[in-house]
Structures are given as structure tokens and as C-alpha cells.
Nucleic acid binder design. Structure first.
Ligand SMILES: [Zn+2]
Ligand SMILES: [Zn+2]
Ligand SMILES: [Zn+2]
Ligand SMILES: [Zn+2]
Lengths: 165, 165
DNA sequence: TCTTGGCATGTTATTTCATATCCTGTCTTG
DNA sequence: CAAGACAGGATATGAAATAACATGCCAAGA
């Protein structure tokens, strides 16, 4: 039971309800355009991740799904998450074994994350990992990169200001 | 104690027994120099990871520890791995929930990994994630990076040559 | 010396994360 | 109205990680 807190996330303030509505609408539009099926469960999972605006474990999502009247067995959440992740609506944070809604919907991108080790806030940004030393090493080794995971752990600005209090 | 000649990747052939022995000796020397305790279990885990020369899950290591006469409960492996990872002798591959011996012993470094999705081979190289777009984003956001996880998934040269055999 | 405290290890049990498998209902399409 | 694809519900199990407690060792300090 690691519930309870509602630590602010993203790193900046913003009009959250609008942000959620807009992202959901964008997802629906894209699914319609591409023939993807944004079913009730999938939509609900995306909505939950957008609303919470933080990384959630599959079982936390499952609890919320149950509260919303959906199935509450692990595969329900994992299947929805697989779909959403496969199409770029959400990302998995390997470091946390958790999922977060994408902050850059629509654009194909190679995401990078900044994860606060104190409050677990997660911010998404873009990365170009194959352009630097890693890309050079891959070419030299004959390795073909298909996907990259880039996750930076550290301290978010909010936590940096209140050192311990 | 640097292996100066070897390229920064692990997809190539090499004199493996020498490589294991040298790395173990280097680890022992460094522990002696820094007052770290490379106990039998810790040494064995490092030796196993060096010998297998691939990423191993904690429970796979545990099986090998059992065969070698050590304790066989999860904490035994996890504690040894924690020690080794904390001091940079091994790295955790988040993507695989597995551990691999460090290829650049001694030097402080920010590792990056290339992981073959077909054969699970892992090669370690250096990365400078904080120097590129990620670093810029972190500065802009006021995020203080302490550690980065960089893991590229793709196809290794060996698997690229045998398309499906 | 004795003892006390830190530390590594062993052991048991539990929690947390993820997948395999089977079955049912609902569309779609010929 | 079949036949097939696919989403989702349910049960069960596997895999990864940690909590909590107990024992033995050794070195500093009384
Ligand atoms: Zn994204
Ligand atoms: Zn924080
Ligand atoms: Zn390394
Ligand atoms: Zn391979």
C-alpha cells in the first residue's frame, strides 16, 4: 500500500484539467485516424495516467480500474498498457517499473526521463542518444540500435528547495 | 590496471580466462587499496558474472551460488550484487532485470549498454548523457542529475549475420 | 581479558511485478 | 449466418525484490 501522497509532478505548474482533456482528445483523434481501437479500458488507463500526472505501477493502475468498475486482474492493466506503450501514448519507466503518460503526443520521438529519487516525479524530454558516443560505439561494434532507454535519476527542483524539512 | 587495448565493446572474441583472472585480480587490488571487503560470496558472484560474460538475473546467480556451496536465498545474491554495484564492479541492466560485470574496472564512468534482443548479449560502452540534449533539458528544468541509465536495444552483429537460423 | 558493536551472512516469509492459459462476447466480413 | 479476429474477464503461476529476524565473526574499547 504505497498510496496516500499526491506529490506534484511534471516539474512545472500548468492547467491540468485542460492538459488532460487535450491529450485525451488528441489520442482519440490519432486512433481514429490510424484505425487503432481506443477501447474503454485503454482510454481509462490513459486518462488515469494523464490525471495523476506521474508514474504509476501496473497494480496501482489496477486499483484505480477496479474503482472505476473495470476488471481488476493484472492482465487487464498490462494489456491496456501494452497497447498504449506500443503506440506511444505512454512510456514505461524501467527504473521504477512504472508507466507514465507521454508528454509529447503524436510526434515520433526517443524519450528521455528525469526521475526525482525523493518524490518520484518524472519529467519527459527528448534525447538523441544515437548521435553521441553511444551511436559511435554502436557503429564501431556493428550493433544496430532499435530503441533506447534513457533515464536520469536525481533531484527535482521542488525537492532541491526543501532539503529535508 | 587498465585493459588499455580492448575496444569498449563486448561483442568480440577474446582470451576469456585471462580476462576473468585479470578482472578479479584488479577487483581484489582495488578492494585492498580502498578498505573494501571482497568477501567469498561477493568474490564468487563477481567471478560468476565475469565467467558467464553476460547478464544474469539474481536468481540465476543464486542457482550458481547454491552449486558452489553458498547460501541460496534471494538476499544472499541481492546483498552481494548491491555491494558490487555500489562500488562499480557490476552494473544492473534495468531493461533485463539482470546484472553484468563491468567492462571498465577502476575508472569512474557513466556506462551505456547495447543489448541484443535476440541473444541477450550485452556490451558496455561509455556515455555522456548529460552533455547532450538531456543535460540541456535538465539545466533548463532545474533538475540535478546524479546518475543515468542508458540502454540501447537492438541487434548484435552476430545475430545480424544469421537472420533466422 | 572481556565485552560490545558493526557487519556480513544465513533463514523464513512476504510483497511486488509480470505472464501463461483458457474462456466468453462482440464485432467484421464473406 | 458461419468463420475468424480481437478485446477483455478469470484463474493460476512464475519471476523479481525486500522485510524481518537470527547467528557468527572480528576489531576497538572498557
Ligand atoms: Zn513521449
Ligand atoms: Zn522531487
Ligand atoms: Zn562499467
Ligand atoms: Zn545477438
Amino acid at each position: 500500500m504505497s498510496a496516500g501522497n499526491a506529490p506534484p509532478v511534471g516539474f512545472e505548474k500548468h492547467d491540468h484539467s485542460a492538459c488532460v482533456a487535450q491529450a485525451l482528445a488528441a489520442a482519440e483523434a490519432r486512433c481514429a485516424a490510424e484505425g487503432l481501437r481506443l477501447t474503454p479500458v485503454r482510454r481509462k488507463v490513459l486518462e488515469l495516467l494523464l490525471q495523476k500526472h506521474r508514474a504509476l505501477g501496473a497494480y496501482a493502475i489496477l486499483d484505480l480500474l477496479r474503482d472505476a468498475g473495470f476488471g481488476s486482474q493484472p492482465p487487464v492493466a498490462y494489456r491496456a498498457l501494452d497497447f498504449l506503450a506500443e503506440h506511444g501514448f505512454v512510456h514505461k519507466i524501467e527504473r521504477l517499473n512504472a508507466f507514465v503518460a507521454c508528454s509529447h503526443p503524436g510526434e515520433t520521438h526517443s524519450p528521455a526521463f528525469m526521475i526525482c529519487r525523493l518524490c518520484d516525479a518524472v519529467a519527459e524530454t527528448q534525447s538523441t542518444p544515437a548521435k553521441g558516443a553511444l551511436g559511435a560505439a554502436a557503429r564501431a561494434a556493428g550493433f544496430h540500435i532499435e530503441k533506447t532507454v534513457v533515464e536520469a535519476e536525481g533531484i527535482c527542483p521542488a525537492c532541491a528547495e526543501k532539503p529535508k524539512a
